[in-house]
Write a protein that binds this DNA or RNA. Structure first.
Lengths: 195, 195
DNA sequence: ACGTTAATTGACCCGTCAATCAACAAAAAA
DNA sequence: TTTTTTGTTGATTGACGGGTCAATTAACGT
């Protein structure tokens, strides 16, 4: 029963289903049919809208990156002062939306994609650049010329803490993640961190 | 022309070929035939020795982990004093052997495996535990009760820096990696880090 | 010599999957 | 009403990949 104006709805459904399936299986070893079935349509329609599996993967990646970007911008908008800006980035990175098992699994596989799909590599590169840039801006007034170095370290730390959650069974540990990163931040700011 | 005592040689060749192929394609999307061809034998023989693809992946993972473990032990053996111990772990983690593109790609995919293969998850867990434990022992005399927390952070940072190399085109940046981690260590030790 | 065992492979089976296509349904336009 | 555009799918195809097996070759022990 074809309704009109289905394209955006179907595309959105497919993108969500793609993320969900990648998260569920923990790998890129998902079939177009699985994704399409979860999104409530035939695999042929998925091909129709995205031209192929790769297109679906990239769309899913763009979507996750867009959500993350929005979350960061939102957090930065209400941050008062440089230190609050850095903390805002950290909190956004580990926000409930980005810290679901599905999404973590998806991220991991984006890195895998980046090894073979140039467009995926480009997208990840944009993410990393933005992350470092955001951190630098907050850090400059705090640590001056060391801002670039510290931003580099914090960015890597965020990714590392994120990666670590892959192995955690059950709910991922948001509070612990934030604490770890902020602990390093505190040390870099020259004050001793709390236990 | 069957020679005797081929088993260990063939197994070793297959393990190396597995790592090489995973590194080359950047994904687990490698066929048994590809691996076997690179190792100079038929795919049937690969199945004969490892029982299947999964067995080959796990063997490759064990091998990488073993090499890494040996490297760490070696570095620790000659380390004088607590701080040197921590630095030894860092240097070993980013040693030339572990920092080749192939191996980095392999590591990334081990995390992917861990999401579906319990044995892979177990192996990675052992690695992470050992890494944290080694760091803690070196850190205890330096930061006392904060050793556990700092070890956690350094371990995550090491993994994050490692992950980051996935996107670097060309040779991975060993010196920069070490510097980033040691910079954070210096900050945690309460001295200001160098630029 | 001779049977036993390790090494080794080509051919094959069975399943799967991405992609295509022809065809149909419904709404919009003419 | 006819035509066009958009939405939709079942069926099909062509390729490929993991795993199995029967059969072959050579070394070894006796």
């Amino acid at each position: 029963m074809p309704k009109l104006g289905m394209e955006p709805i179907r595309k959105a459904a497919l993108v969500n289903a793609t993320i969900a399936e990648i998260g569920r299986t923990g790998s890129l070893d998902v079939t177009v049919s699985q994704i399409a079935r979860r999104a409530g349509m035939s695999s042929a329609l998925a091909h129709h809208y995205f031209g192929g599996k790769e297109g679906m993967f990239l769309a899913a990646m763009r979507h996750v990156l867009t959500l993350y970007g929005a979350e960061v911008r939102g957090a930065l908008a209400v941050a008062r002062g440089p230190e609050a800006r850095v903390q805002a980035v950290v909190h956004a990175s580990f926000s409930p939306a980005n810290f679901r098992r599905e999404v973590i699994g998806a991220w991991l596989n984006f890195y895998v994609m980046a090894q073979t799909m140039p467009e995926a590599a480009r997208l990840l590169d944009v993410y990393q650049r933005r992350l470092r840039s955001n951190l630098r801006h907050g850090l400059r007034p705090l640590v001056g010329p060391r801002a670039a170095t510290v931003a580099e370290a914090l960015a890597a730390l965020i990714d590392g803490v994120y990666l670590r959650q892959v192995l955690v069974r059950g709910k991922a540990d948001r509070a612990g993640a934030v604490e770890t990163v902020l602990g390093v931040l505190a040390a870099e700011l020259g004050r001793g961190a709390r236990t």
